[in-house]
């Protein structure tokens, strides 16, 4: 069942084309990663999902309802954490959290709220003007996770948090997922996305350029190999699918396209393999390749 569905979404600001036919779909109980460079259109997409911006064309549906038309009904079932939390300087953090929860109209589990404040090491009695960026972020996170939501929309939610707090955040996402909630997580912290997300979409210049499970995305990429052999392997650097070839400490270090791996292993095994280390590509490798533009398009198709 699809909790969130976006089809051929476009948005233009004046002459600027911010989104150019974005497709997204998040299933129930899924944690969906949404990554892309600055200005690629992540926040624009999210703000359309929230009914804050009106799409130029295409549609965005949450729970089968239109994001713009049925904003109120949709918002009763979601929780949103932006990457830049702006609060009222003369209210305390505790007051803002209560206001947000009151407006969501959900039953608030007070002990859960208290526990979250403790876990996030958050002092709710201070005025918002005195909070650092990380602390303002905590206000939005606590308000989001203190009550259940069917869908959490998180736009770089951990920007400004220290690594300890980031771990608390990840725990919150795990728990939400366990309860069957869905999460749309936009983030630049790729290790976080890697750890939390079931599926990932990569957006660049207003277009989704890649999407799928991490495993399937990895399949499309290159594997880092470090090999030592008894005999010299002739012409290794000119074998099909080999990239970035170099020799370090009598080891061959190179990348190979995932679909050429089998062929490659067969070839080197003739020369007596004494050591073989392979590293799966990290999301970062994936990301870098996509970000660096279409110029390096020679990889696995």
């Amino acid at each position: 069942m699809k909790v969130l569905e976006v089809k051929q979404l476009t948005k233009t600001f004046g002459k600027v084309q911010a989104l150019d036919g974005v497709d997204l779909a998040v299933n129930k109980g899924e944690v969906y990663g949404f990554i892309g460079p600055n200005g690629a259109g992540k926040s624009t997409t999210i703000r359309i999902l929230l009914g804050l911006l009106k799409p130029t064309s295409g549609f965005a549906r949450l729970f089968g309802k239109d994001a713009w038309e049925d904003a109120v009904a949709i918002h009763k079932r979601i929780a949103y954490v932006p990457g830049d939390v702006n609060l009222w300087p003369n209210l305390t953090g505790g007051e803002v959290i209560d206001l947000f929860l009151k407006m969501r109209g959900v039953r608030v589990d007070q002990s859960r709220k208290a526990r979250l404040m403790e876990q996030f090491d958050f002092d709710p009695t201070k005025k918002c003007r005195t909070y650092s960026k990380g602390n303002r972020q905590k206000v939005a996170l606590i308000a989001a996770f203190a009550a259940d939501a069917d869908l959490y929309i998180l736009d770089e939610p951990t920007s400004g948090l220290d690594p300890l707090m980031e771990r608390v955040f990840q725990q919150c996402v795990y728990e939400a997922k366990k309860k069957g909630s869905s999460v749309l997580l936009s983030s630049h912290i790729l290790s976080e996305v890697e750890r939390l997300c079931d599926r990932v979409a990569i957006i660049r210049q207003g277009e989704i350029i890649e999407s799928g499970s991490l495993a399937s995305l990895r399949h499309l990429t290159r594997i880092q190999l470090t090999i030592a052999t008894k005999e010299v392997v002739p012409d290794l650097d000119s074998q099909p699918g080999v990239h970035d070839f170099k020799i370090e400490n009598q080891h061959y270090v190179f990348q190979v396209d995932a679909d050429q791996l089998d062929e490659m292993v067969r070839y080197v095994s003739q020369y007596g393999v004494v050591n073989l280390e392979s590293a799966p590509p990290t999301l970062e490798d994936l990301f870098m390749r996509h970000y660096q533009g279409s110029t390096s398009g020679g990889g696995g198709q």
Partner: peptide, 15 residues
């Protein structure tokens, strides 16, 4: 302008 409205409008609140 300061972004507080965005926080509120993401909650169930009429336009």
């Amino acid at each position: 302008e300061d972004g507080q409205l965005e926080m509120l409008r993401a909650l169930p609140m009429g336009r």
